[in-house]
Design a protein around this nucleic acid. Structure first.
Length: 98
DNA sequence: CTAATGACTGTCT
DNA sequence: CAGACAGCCATTA
Protein backbone atom coordinates (compact mmCIF):
# COMPACT_ATOMS: atom_id res chain seq x y z
CA UNK A 1 0.00 0.00 0.00
CA UNK A 2 2.97 2.23 0.48
CA UNK A 3 3.36 2.42 -3.27
CA UNK A 4 -0.07 3.92 -3.79
CA UNK A 5 0.58 6.35 -0.99
CA UNK A 6 3.76 7.47 -2.69
CA UNK A 7 1.97 7.88 -6.00
CA UNK A 8 -0.91 9.79 -4.40
CA UNK A 9 1.62 12.06 -2.71
CA UNK A 10 3.37 12.75 -6.00
CA UNK A 11 0.10 13.48 -7.77
CA UNK A 12 -0.89 15.89 -5.05
CA UNK A 13 2.41 17.73 -5.23
CA UNK A 14 2.01 18.05 -8.99
CA UNK A 15 -1.46 19.53 -8.54
CA UNK A 16 -0.16 22.02 -5.98
CA UNK A 17 2.34 23.59 -8.36
CA UNK A 18 1.04 27.15 -8.96
CA UNK A 19 0.63 28.53 -12.46
CA UNK A 20 3.73 30.35 -13.56
CA UNK A 21 6.05 28.05 -11.62
CA UNK A 22 7.71 24.69 -12.23
CA UNK A 23 9.13 21.87 -10.17
CA UNK A 24 11.48 18.98 -10.88
CA UNK A 25 11.11 15.18 -10.85
CA UNK A 26 13.68 15.09 -8.10
CA UNK A 27 11.54 17.37 -5.95
CA UNK A 28 8.48 15.19 -6.43
CA UNK A 29 10.44 12.10 -5.37
CA UNK A 30 14.10 12.59 -4.38
CA UNK A 31 14.62 8.86 -3.91
CA UNK A 32 13.47 7.90 -7.39
CA UNK A 33 13.14 10.73 -9.93
CA UNK A 34 12.02 8.19 -12.50
CA UNK A 35 8.84 7.46 -10.56
CA UNK A 36 7.08 10.79 -11.20
CA UNK A 37 8.09 10.42 -14.81
CA UNK A 38 6.63 6.95 -15.08
CA UNK A 39 3.44 8.07 -13.33
CA UNK A 40 2.95 11.03 -15.65
CA UNK A 41 3.42 8.76 -18.66
CA UNK A 42 1.05 6.05 -17.42
CA UNK A 43 -1.54 7.75 -15.21
CA UNK A 44 -4.95 8.59 -16.63
CA UNK A 45 -5.48 11.45 -14.22
CA UNK A 46 -6.83 14.51 -15.97
CA UNK A 47 -6.12 18.18 -15.43
CA UNK A 48 -2.61 17.53 -14.25
CA UNK A 49 -0.17 20.40 -14.94
CA UNK A 50 2.37 17.92 -16.31
CA UNK A 51 4.05 20.67 -18.30
CA UNK A 52 5.17 22.30 -15.05
CA UNK A 53 7.33 19.30 -14.28
CA UNK A 54 10.80 19.83 -15.74
CA UNK A 55 14.26 18.36 -15.34
CA UNK A 56 16.67 19.54 -12.66
CA UNK A 57 18.63 21.61 -15.17
CA UNK A 58 15.53 23.40 -16.44
CA UNK A 59 15.20 21.39 -19.64
CA UNK A 60 11.93 19.57 -20.31
CA UNK A 61 11.16 16.03 -21.41
CA UNK A 62 8.30 16.70 -23.84
CA UNK A 63 10.07 19.07 -26.16
CA UNK A 64 8.11 21.72 -28.07
CA UNK A 65 4.72 20.64 -26.83
CA UNK A 66 5.76 21.35 -23.27
CA UNK A 67 7.76 24.45 -24.07
CA UNK A 68 4.75 26.13 -25.59
CA UNK A 69 2.50 25.45 -22.60
CA UNK A 70 5.16 26.75 -20.24
CA UNK A 71 5.65 29.91 -22.25
CA UNK A 72 1.90 30.33 -22.40
CA UNK A 73 1.70 30.37 -18.61
CA UNK A 74 4.27 33.14 -18.47
CA UNK A 75 7.04 30.96 -17.11
CA UNK A 76 10.41 32.75 -17.42
CA UNK A 77 12.95 31.22 -19.78
CA UNK A 78 16.72 31.28 -19.66
CA UNK A 79 17.68 30.74 -23.24
CA UNK A 80 16.38 27.35 -24.31
CA UNK A 81 15.59 26.12 -20.82
CA UNK A 82 13.32 27.24 -17.99
CA UNK A 83 14.77 29.91 -15.72
CA UNK A 84 14.99 27.82 -12.55
CA UNK A 85 16.34 30.76 -10.57
CA UNK A 86 12.94 32.40 -10.82
CA UNK A 87 10.32 29.77 -11.62
CA UNK A 88 11.53 26.82 -9.60
CA UNK A 89 9.21 25.72 -6.80
CA UNK A 90 11.27 23.70 -4.27
CA UNK A 91 9.88 20.51 -2.76
CA UNK A 92 9.63 22.13 0.65
CA UNK A 93 7.48 24.93 -0.69
CA UNK A 94 5.10 22.40 -2.21
CA UNK A 95 4.90 20.43 1.03
CA UNK A 96 4.23 23.65 2.90
CA UNK A 97 1.17 24.32 0.76
CA UNK A 98 -0.38 21.06 1.85
C1' DC B 1 13.54 -15.11 -11.03
C1' DT B 2 16.71 -12.24 -14.11
C1' DA B 3 17.16 -8.58 -17.55
C1' DA B 4 15.81 -4.48 -19.90
C1' DT B 5 13.52 0.14 -20.01
C1' DG B 6 11.92 4.75 -18.86
C1' DA B 7 8.74 12.21 -18.78
C1' DC B 8 15.73 11.39 -13.96
C1' DT B 9 20.09 12.98 -11.43
C1' DG B 10 24.82 13.94 -9.95
C1' DT B 11 29.58 13.25 -11.14
C1' DC B 12 33.29 12.57 -14.18
C1' DT B 13 35.48 13.00 -19.04
C1' DC C 1 29.08 22.88 -22.89
C1' DA C 2 28.02 18.12 -24.30
C1' DG C 3 28.46 13.04 -23.81
C1' DA C 4 29.23 8.80 -20.88
C1' DC C 5 28.37 6.14 -16.41
C1' DA C 6 26.40 4.33 -12.55
C1' DG C 7 22.61 4.63 -9.10
C1' DC C 8 17.49 4.51 -8.12
C1' DC C 9 12.36 2.53 -8.29
C1' DA C 10 8.56 0.19 -10.49
C1' DT C 11 6.78 -1.98 -14.59
C1' DT C 12 7.18 -5.27 -18.36
C1' DA C 13 9.16 -9.08 -21.14
Amino acid sequence: MADEERQAQILQLIRSVPEGFVTTYGDLCPEAPRLPGRILSTTKEKGLPWHRIVRADGSFAQGDRQRRLLRKEGIPFAGKRVDMEVAHMPREALLAQV
